[in-house]
Amino acid sequence: MSKNQRLAAVSSGLLILITLTPVASQLTSTMRGHVLLQIPLLVAVGIGFGRSLAPHLVRFLNRWNAMGIPGILITIFTIAFWMIPRWIDASLTNTSVEWIKHSSLVLLGGIPLALSWERLYPVARGAVKIEFLSMLFRLGWLYLISPDRFCNSYLLEDQIWLGWGMIIIGMALTLTWLVPVFFGEYAPAETGHSSPKNPNEAPNAA
């Protein structure tokens, strides 16, 4: 089995595990599991698939994905959509919405991210990371102060858990991304714009 096939197999296995087995309802039984585990896992599955795509397909898609901009936009819109509480609720009460959520997070969330991340200009990569962090802090804060439940399917207590979870994950991510920036030792580039490949800019970082 080639490396790509292995990756695809692992991703498929993970996808089956989190959508078809009892793990699925376990993950969505709490708001924190839903938002902090299930959604990121679905994106991760998509990243796995994206990285195991056949080279000629990647080449074809790249023609439509200059500098990774179109691709990252698809990912951003997809994730933004599934941050709307209304649709999180709907995915619990409506099976077709649930399937749309699963497939879109894999196909439109993860795969374009995998195909675009390395191609993004480093400044754009940084901007996406910063915006991602501020989204975590903003949503976390909103969840903590909201007088009402955002989701009818979850308890207020659960929502506060999620708020803290987002803020703590945001802080942890900040540190994780900062340490290599300060202490990493990237090979200095010889010339021009050939920016070195940075360990902190692995595609799974976002």
């Binding site: 209304r86 955002f150 989701c151 009818n152």
Partner: peptide, 20 residues
């Protein structure tokens, strides 16, 4: 498409929760 999806998905940026 993205902006339309967000607009439609929130009834024109007004309806964020299932309750609303």
């Amino acid at each position: 498409i993205g902006l339309s999806a967000l607009t439609v998905g929130t009834n024109g940026w007004s309806t964020w929760t299932a309750e609303a």
